[in-house]
Structures are given as structure tokens and as C-alpha cells.
Design a binder for these strands. Structure first.
Lengths: 394, 394
DNA sequence: CCTGTCTGCTAATTCGTATTAGCACGCCCT
DNA sequence: AGGGCGTGCTAATACGAATTAGCAGACAGG
């Protein structure tokens, strides 16, 4: 039907050569390219009338910029499970991209296997974009080192360990991350100040940098604190009322997709900050964990995942325990969800939107060759909340 | 650093021509391309050793399609206000695009004025994509007719009236919409069957096709029913507990953006299916509307916007009225949110995700020149819910 | 009138890959 | 020996846009 217009078509319509069209388009005003206003206007008029835009692929072939920023997500973007995780990032990215006048290219062509995508597959189209943002809880070191080795301009949203290049030297990965270590250390300190003697950290503590960083911050302050892996997600429970309230709009869409992966690894077992409501996690495992915690005299729990924090608090309250009276619960993630009762969870807030914004800024700096701090950590905002209190009996 | 390998490099290393490398790579076995196993293996060996991968840009350059689908949203995509509206569409779009091996280009470069984008601004980049999907509650007829006139391949998500072309003939706009008319007619019929004599329709009923279609369905069945414009959004109320529960995760991000636009038009006053919780709408206007409805003997209200339905139900209950005992409330949108108390709102569900999927399918068909129904309406799934009941006294 | 310079444009080439046309060589047949 | 044919490969070209080199014409200076 509608054939794609080329510069030759424009040239023909404007009665000039393809070269001239290119020169006009790129505003070349060098001595070797003198286009009088009259001709220039004639060309521009045709371009406006036809809505011609240069083929981005042809431009990239010559290493030109297209005002297209790539967004590569290591999981699917839109399915509801990841929605709340990606959304704030994307919101910030969109805002910045708009300011820069860039379009965003979502690499949906990369096949998803097992819920994960990889940049380097047979037909990777990364180079269509001028540069890319990488999002995901965890990014394989091999991908990062290869991107760095190929000199591809990218910025990771989230801190990443610097991988080794094939030649053995470490690569400097550009990122905009959140300073989980400091934030976790701070809330841990706060817990100690409130008189808690036995603390527990609940979370994988490894695999993803974000998990490791939190554990590190915890152990810096409370080296003798407990570290427990996250509870296994229970099957969905009957009591759907609570669950629905939290996730209703997307509920129907989701139906088909099984939420908990079959996998046994800690990583897969805890989807990134997914908004799994308390009720769904209040299975046996959480109860067991609570037994263990109480048995060991723990008075304050710090959970990486808000859902785990919620499940623990819920479970504790069901047993007649007061939160934070008998047990303090801290969320090392997005603590800004209301607790049953009142107030928010104590913990900190991840500046996701700002991370998105800054990541675009950094990528732009990289692309235009500006000087810039390649590795940036943003502060997490502490949330006082209502689930961390003085230890009982003080 | 490491320059990208080309077929010429491989050719040199394997002591053959670039053509041969290409032939081997693409497994060409035609009569005109006979490569003996010996040579083929030599080439393959070099490819394996070097890890060479063909540049997808160069490959695409030869074909007509770029495998890029544009996504044009008439409002910003990611800001939380529109999030729940766009999300299911995008989820479906992403899924289909992935199956087709296409990347998605979000036109964030189009400037946003007054919360709205326009395709046709001075530097529109629509033609970067092979074709585009158009999303938005309302799309100006001028935009549609120009797109059609320019023969640009696109599909609208949502039914649109066919605009007139400059020459006066109507343009056939390709779309995948939801059949609001039938769905509304069906629930209206149901209300009549339940004995309701006086019905009211609450919604703009115009401007956007989606609004007009619902009013049409209502009036087809209940020609004497009342039609009221939606209540004006009240300022945010103090009772934030309910509100927070519904929208907490994004709350902090949102802070800066004022939610209710200053505008007075019905369109702006009712953001598309935004998850504005009941409490926020329970202002004075809703109370007034309730007065009017009850005064006129209305026993069943059909509200286009779930938020309005929620506000009315909430307000009614506050006055000690039973829902649906004294007043039935029907949501003509995504009825799948739990009501205070139990169950869901009665009404219907908009198959947003499926609309996204089908729209991509239709666009693909258009692009590849296949025959396809250009205007498709999907059925809305009826939701029995708990807010529509027999009229009292029967 | 011839040379030099400036202006306004374009032909030719490039990027990396795919495809088409066809060359050079060897073999068989008559 | 020469025509015909099959084999194994390559040269040339195309895709769309950007860039470089440089041509043709106007005009000035000598």
C-alpha cells in the first residue's frame, strides 16, 4: 500500500538531488555545502508535506543518532506481575525522554525465555537505538561485559558489579542505582537505637546486587543478626478479599499466568517487589519463619520484600501479637503501602522515578560525549512508618 | 575498543568472498549457490571462532520492513493517572509484538500540551515505525483523516467515527474497539427485567466515541431514562485511608502532579477509568446528584466511570440506603473492583488486553497486505456483581 | 580573453548484508 | 577439437542516508 518515502522521492519532488535533501535535513552549513534559503525552503516544504522521516536503520548504519533511546527490560514490561516494579522507572524515563525530544524503543523483539530476556540473541537489534537503558533485578555479568566490550552506549538502572572483560580487566558499568547499603544500615542502626538486640534480615541476600547490598548494610551494623532466606510463596489462599482489594484492576487479565514460578531458586521465588498481597504469602512457610524468629528472640525483622514484611506482620497479628509492640517489622523496599490498621510500613522508599530520570540523563551525557559520573547512587528516603517501635520492656 | 566484525573480515579469514560468507550464513542451496561442504565448514569454523553475528540493521535495510511498531498515546503513557487505563492495552500489545518479533516505539518525542499529544506537529516522526497503534480516549477527527489521507498504516485501539477526508468522502478508520453499545444495552435490559422503571445514565455521553456509544446503548433500551453529566470531582477529602489503600504504591511519585485538571470540560473532568477512589468523589456534587436521582424516583443508576459508580454507592450507603436494595448501581466500565462490603460492581468488563492483542494483529495484517476486517468490535464480558438487584417492593 | 575564485549544486562512495548475474574451469560427448 | 554442461565460486549491485570530492557556471581581476 503505502511505500516508504526515501530521500530520492523528496529529491524528485523538490527538483534537487538526494545529496541536497540530506544536507538540508542535517542542517549542514559547511563551506562545502551551501544551500541558498530558497532551495532549502523548497525542500523543507516537501518534507513537511510528506511527513518524511529518515529511515532509522539506514542512519544507524552510518553511526548517526536517531533520537531513539532503547529500553531493555530483562523481564516482560507490562504483564501485571512486573508492572509495579517497572512502572515508576518508566515514568521517569518517559518524562526525561520527552524533555530531550527522544522516542523510546522497547525491545520486545528479544524473545522471552523462562520469564527472562537476553540482549544477545541471534538477532539483537540494540543498535537501532542510539543507546539503551537496561532494567531488571538481575543482569548476567556476561551480558554487561559484552556490551562494554562492544563499546555499546548503555546505562543500567540499578547498581551492577563491574564484570571482567574477556581479557581479564574489569569493565566500568555505567549505572544509576539506589544506595540500599546505606539505607539498610541506617534503619538497622535505628532499630538498635530503639533497643532491639536480636535482629533478623529476611531476603535472598545474594544473586542480585540489590539483594546483596541490603544484606551488606545490615551486616555492617548488626554483624550477629540473623539472615533468613525469604519464605516460599504459599499457594493462593481462599481469603481472596484482601488480595483482590490490592490488585483488583489487573486481576482478570492475570488469571492465566501462574504467578509463582515452578523454580526452586530463591531468585525466582521472589519476583521483584511484586505487589503480592499479604494474604497470599500467609501460607505455612511464613508461619514457620515466624516460629523460628520468635524462638530465637528476634524482636525486629527487616524484610527486603514488602510483601514478606506484610506477610510477617499479618501473621504476627493473627497470633495476637502487636506490631510493633511485640515485633517490629521493617520493609527494605517501597515502604509506602498502608498497613492494616494505620500508617505505613517503616523502612525506606526507593527513588525509582528519579532513577529513571537520572539514567536517561546519564545516557544522554554518554552519547554526547560529556563528562559525567558513570556510577551514581541515589539516596533512599527513610519512611518513619508505624511498624518499627521501641523494644518491649524498656 | 573491539571493532565490530563484518562479513568481509570473515571472508578474509576464510579466504573466500563476502558473498560466499553470506551464502553460507543463510544456508542458500539454490542452483546458483553451490558451496561444497569443505568450503562451508571452513567458513563456519571462522564464524564460530570469532563469534560473528550479522548486523541486523544491514539485513533489514534490504527488506522493506523495519519490524518496528509505533505506539502513539494521546496522553502520557506512564504517569500514574493514566497508568491503569493504558496498562492492559500495552500488556496485550507487548505480548503480540513479541510474538511477531517486533519492537515497540513509544512516541515520547511528540510534545505534550495540556496533557495531550498530537501526531501532527512540525517534526512528526511517525514514519520511523512501519505502522502505528493509536491509543487515547479521544482522537481528533482531523488527525485521523490526515493519517488516512496520507495512507499511513495505523490501527486505532478503540472505535472511532469515520472522519471526512478533505475531498468530502468518508475515510475508513481501522480499529479494534469494544462494543459498549451492546454491553450497555444488555445491562440496561437486565435492569428493566429486574423491575426498575426509572433509570439514569451518568456520564458525558458525547465527545469520545466510547461515551457516546454507551449513551446510545442506554437510550436504545430506555429512551425515557435520565441522562446526567458526571459529577464534578471534589477536592481531595481528608479521609485518606480508603484512598491510599487503592492507590498507595504510586502515591509518592504522584505527589507533584495535580490530579484533577483545572479544565471545565466534561472530557477533562473525567480521566479515563482512573482509579480515583470513592472517597475522592464523595464531594458535594455527588450528594446533589444523589438528591436529584432519588427525587426523580430513580432506582438504578448506570455510570460510565467506575469511580462515579463507586462515589454514588458510597454516598448512598452513607445515607443509610442499601445498595442494591434501595438503589442499584451499575458500572459501565471495568466493573471488577470489589465494593465495600462484598462482591464486585455489576456491569461489564472491557477486554483491554485482548483489544491490544487484536490491534497488533490487525496492524500486521494491514502491513503485510492481508485481507482483514478493518473495523472490529469485541464483546464486553458481563459482570454479574452485587450492586444490581430487584427493585424494592416487588 | 584568460585565470582565479566563489557559489550552488551533484556524482560517487560508504556503511554491512543479500541477491543476481555470470565467469572460469573441468568434464563429457560427438 | 569444439560445443555443451555442470561446478564452485565471485563481481556487481541494491537497500537508504551521509559525506567527500569536485563539476559547472557566474563573476571579478588582470
Amino acid at each position: 500500500m503505502s511505500e516508504r518515502l526515501t530521500q530520492r522521492d523528496i529529491a524528485r519532488l523538490a527538483r534537487v538531488s538526494q545529496t541536497t535533501v540530506s544536507l538540508v535535513l542535517n542542517n549542514r552549513t559547511a563551506a562545502s555545502a551551501r544551500i541558498p534559503v530558497e532551495t532549502r525552503d523548497r525542500v523543507l516544504k516537501v518534507i513537511r508535506e510528506t511527513g518524511y522521516v529518515a529511515d532509522p536503520l539506514a542512519r544507524r548504519l552510518l553511526q548517526q543518532r536517531n533520537q531513539i533511546l532503547g529500553v531493555f527490560t530483562y523481564e516482560s514490561v507490562f504483564p501485571s506481575a512486573s508492572a509495579d516494579f517497572y512502572h515508576p522507572f518508566l515514568s521517569g524515563i518517559e518524562e526525561s525522554a520527552e524533555e530531550l525530544g527522544c522516542d523510546l524503543l522497547l525491545f520486545t523483539s528479544a524473545p522471552v525465555t523462562d520469564g527472562h530476556r537476553l540482549v544477545f540473541h541471534e538477532n539483537n537489534r540494540l543498535r537501532i537505538a542510539d543507546g539503551s537503558l537496561l532494567l531488571g533485578r538481575r543482569i548476567p555479568a556476561a551480558e554487561l561485559s559484552r556490551l562494554a566490550a562492544e563499546n555499546y552506549p548503555f546505562v543500567s538502572v540499578g547498581r551492577r558489579d563491574n564484570p571482567l572483560l574477556p581479557d581479564g580487566t574489569p569493565a566500568l558499568i555505567p549505572y544509576v542505582g539506589a544506595d540500599y547499603t546505606t539505607a539498610t544500615a541506617t534503619v538497622t542502626t535505628r532499630a538498635l537505637q530503639l533497643g532491639h538486640k536480636q535482629l533478623a534480615f529476611v531476603g535472598p541476600g545474594q544473586d542480585a546486587e540489590s539483594s546483596a547490598d541490603r544484606l551488606l548494610g545490615f551486616q555492617q551494623i548488626a554483624p550477629r543478626g540473623l539472615h533468613l532466606p525469604p519464605p516460599a510463596p504459599a499457594e493462593r489462599v481462599k481469603d481472596a478479599a484482601l488480595a483482590r482489594r490490592a490488585s483488583a484492576p489487573a486481576e482478570r487479565e492475570r488469571g492465566a499466568r501462574s504467578r509463582s514460578s515452578k523454580g526452586a531458586s530463591a531468585l525466582l521465588a521472589t519476583p521483584p517487589a511484586s505487589p503480592v498481597p499479604p494474604a497470599e504469602r500467609a501460607g505455612r512457610a511464613v508461619g514457620d519463619m515466624l516460629d523460628e524468629l520468635l524462638g530465637r528472640g528476634v524482636t525486629a525483622v527487616l524484610a527486603e520484600d514488602l510483601a514478606d514484611a506484610a506477610a510477617l506482620a499479618h501473621s504476627a497479628r493473627e497470633r495476637g501479637l502487636a506490631v510493633p509492640g511485640d515485633l517490629s517489622v521493617v520493609a527494605l523496599g517501597d515502604a509506602s503501602r498502608p498497613v492494616e490498621g494505620d500508617g505505613e510500613y517503616s523502612g525506606f522508599h526507593i527513588p525509582r522515578k528519579e532513577m529513571g530520570r537520572r539514567a536517561v540523563g546519564l545516557l544522554e551525557a554518554v552519547l554526547s560525549g560529556e563528562e559525567a559520573e558513570l556510577q551514581q547512587l541515589l539516596n533512599c528516603e527513610l519512611v518513619e512508618g508505624s511498624t518499627l517501635g521501641k523494644v518491649k520492656g524498656i
